[in-house]
Design a protein around this nucleic acid. Structure first.
Lengths: 192, 192
DNA sequence: GAATATACGGAACACGGTTCCGCTTTGCAA
DNA sequence: TTGCAAAGCGGAACCGTGTTCCGTATATTC
């Protein structure tokens, strides 16, 4: 979308720039795991051995960096939608599996769900990317389940994804259980 | 709990201090409505016509101020639990009504749900107060519904409240619908 | 009316994101 | 190979926010 790592028509970046971008992605990924996605930018820069300015040149906002780090996993999740639909016994089962896939992804990334929800302008990109990529997939699953008469026909995919994301906030608190709550939502979706 | 406005055994504060506390609460309430609970402390101080130091003397953390402003409404919500249980046709209906009461409270306070969820140490007080006051009420409602065989007997009130709170985050986004999601949870709770 | 405890105001500090600009490195061309 | 413009880099500086601190002002007491 933003073409941060575009290799099609861009005038090709300088070698050191490409090297830095890679180093930065690796450092960010490592820091996200060890300290959550809200780790200070300065720390990522230090870990990568570059100045903060370099981060901002490659990734105009913190959200762009997060998107770049998790792009592969989001893609994988999006692509799993149709596959699950084909393989599952019922559309509702496929929907449930897919949502669980998404939840698994979210809860293992400390702070990602929070960041996703932040109304901070800087996270707009993050929000938009997740929604653009995943809402259509979810909508297809919902459609299939509705057509099969398993759920009500008027559930909005955006609302559902938004809510699921919300439920994953604070998932690292041992007294909370995001998966249980998501399970209730999935159950609540089903017509009785 | 903290006794911010305790009038029992404290040596009685100076008149100007009492006046300022009141002014501050009014200013904060007004600012929370117009700009959300995350309005800058300086703005509240300006609105009240006092220095920021004065805020911090009366309310050691931002969370204490929020608690003080909303204490009445939280109390009312807590007290509504037993009443609803007595008046409703079934415990599950009472639970549903009570949860909706809580959701109504939350979604009309811009940013309160977010603040509630912040893992920021300063909001610990806020989190603790809401949980201490409301989780027991919720637990009683869950118990009653479980006893009546309407829901599974192992639902944890803390998890449920936490999840409901999460679902209310971002409720002012017109494309989202917190009440709908909460409705799914309530439906999912019910045994079929 | 003076003494003293209490409270006040707001400058100063901590911290995190973001911007800016002088300096360095790269890549191309002569 | 060397020169030089463009691309990229580092990190100091800036901004907005929460929070602390302390010299000054005010209430209360005697």
């Amino acid at each position: 979308m933003t073409g941060t790592s575009g290799e099609s028509s861009a005038p090709r970046k300088r070698a050191d720039a490409r090297r830095n971008e890679k180093t930065l992605l690796e450092a960010a990924a490592a820091m996200f795991v060890s300290s959550g996605v809200d780790v200070p930018v300065r720390d990522i820069a230090a870990k990568a051995g570059v100045g903060v300015g370099t981060i901002y040149r490659h990734f105009p906002t913190r959200a762009d960096l997060i998107v770049a780090v998790y792009r592969h996993q989001v893609e994988a999740c999006a692509e799993a939608g149709p596959v699950l639909l084909a393989k599952s016994t019922t559309p509702h089962a496929a929907l449930a599996s897919w949502i669980n896939l998404f939840v698994d992804f979210l809860v293992t990334k400390h702070g990602l769900a929070e960041a996703l929800r932040s109304n901070d302008a800087a996270f707009q990109t993050l929000h938009a990317y997740f929604l653009d990529r995943l809402v259509p997939v979810c909508a297809d699953l919902l459609d299939a389940a509705a057509t099969a008469g398993e759920i009500a026909p008027d559930m909005d995919a955006l609302v559902l994804m938004h809510g699921i994301g919300n439920l994953c906030i604070g998932a690292d608190n041992p007294r909370y259980d995001a998966r249980l709550m998501v399970g209730l939502v999935i159950a609540g979706l089903r017509l009785r």
